[in-house]
Amino acid sequence: MLRVNGIEVGVTITGEGPAVLLLHGFPHTRRLWAEIVPRLARRHRVIAPDLRGLGESERPPDGYDAGTLAADAEALLDALGEPTASVVGIDAGAPPAFLLAMRRPGRVRRLVLMESLLGRLPGAEEFLAGGPPWWFGFHAIPGLAETVLTGHEAEYVDWFLDAGTRGRGLPREIRDHFVAAYTGRDALRAAFAHYRAMPVSAGQIADAVTSGRLAVPTMAIGAHPVGDALARQLRPIADDLVTHLVEDCGHIIPLDRPDALAELLEPFLAEKTTLAS
């Protein structure tokens, strides 16, 4: 546990070398990276925190917008004495990773974004043609989802874990850990606070793009269901972008197709980077 940006954050730190910061999404914790951390730790100092409000991290009443989450990430690097890091974000971890790279490019050597959308940036129109995923609206209404789901957290989390692996599921230990992390009204409240902050996050992303370009070398990785929507959002604003689609892979790439993900991450993170000014 480390105190960063005014909150207590649970974090796993292992390995030696250039720092890599891993930011998970919903309904996950830092255990999302269980298959990836040992591989990256052979050459890197791997830093995997629980996002604000999730897992072992403190559940404050506010601060769930992407800008504050980016500040949490930067404060964590400060606390660990890391002036720079490569940053990998998936799902809810992608917008703060993006904003950190946009706002503080000198601190981000390389950026990897997976299975997420960046606010209302153009490029995701096809993905959103039928409207955003149903749970976005459900989670956004203050108090509703907590009231409905308390006592049924396991069934709800299981739906996301099954869908996110295209029915293949997760190892029982990790599944049970995720369920426990999202059990209880306050745990649900903190989780859904990330969704309730999305309008603020979208405005922060739009402002960042208006005032500058993404100069950090970036890799976008898609699977099912987001596919290439994220890459389409990034292409007009990124100076150095590579994109990949992982075949036959669900949303939870690090646990559904860890070997394929490692094959993409390891060489990309190992490349030399000239830091942006």
Rank of each mutant, 00 (worst) to 15 (best):
H152D: 08
S86Q: 08
A129Q: 12
L161Y: 09
L21P: 12
A206E: 15
S277P: 14
A92E: 08
L161N: 08
G184K: 02
D158R: 02
T68P: 07
G169S: 10
L245M: 13
R232M: 13
R232S: 15
D162R: 09
L269F: 10
T273V: 15
T68N: 08
C249R: 10
R104H: 11
E153A: 09
G143L: 13
A124S: 14
P254H: 13
A101K: 02
L99Q: 04
V88P: 03
R30C: 00
R104W: 01
G169I: 04
I90S: 05
A191M: 10
R232I: 13
P96H: 12
R235H: 14
A163Y: 11
T147Y: 15
L22D: 06
M219K: 15
R104I: 03
R110E: 03
Y64V: 01
Q233V: 12
A229R: 08
L117Y: 03
G222L: 09
T165K: 06
F136M: 01
G81W: 03
A229L: 14
D239M: 09
R172Q: 15
A180S: 14
A229I: 13
E271R: 15
D239P: 09
L214N: 11
E74I: 05
V112W: 03
P225Y: 11
T243I: 01
V200W: 06
T165D: 05
P171T: 06
R109F: 07
A191S: 12
A208S: 14
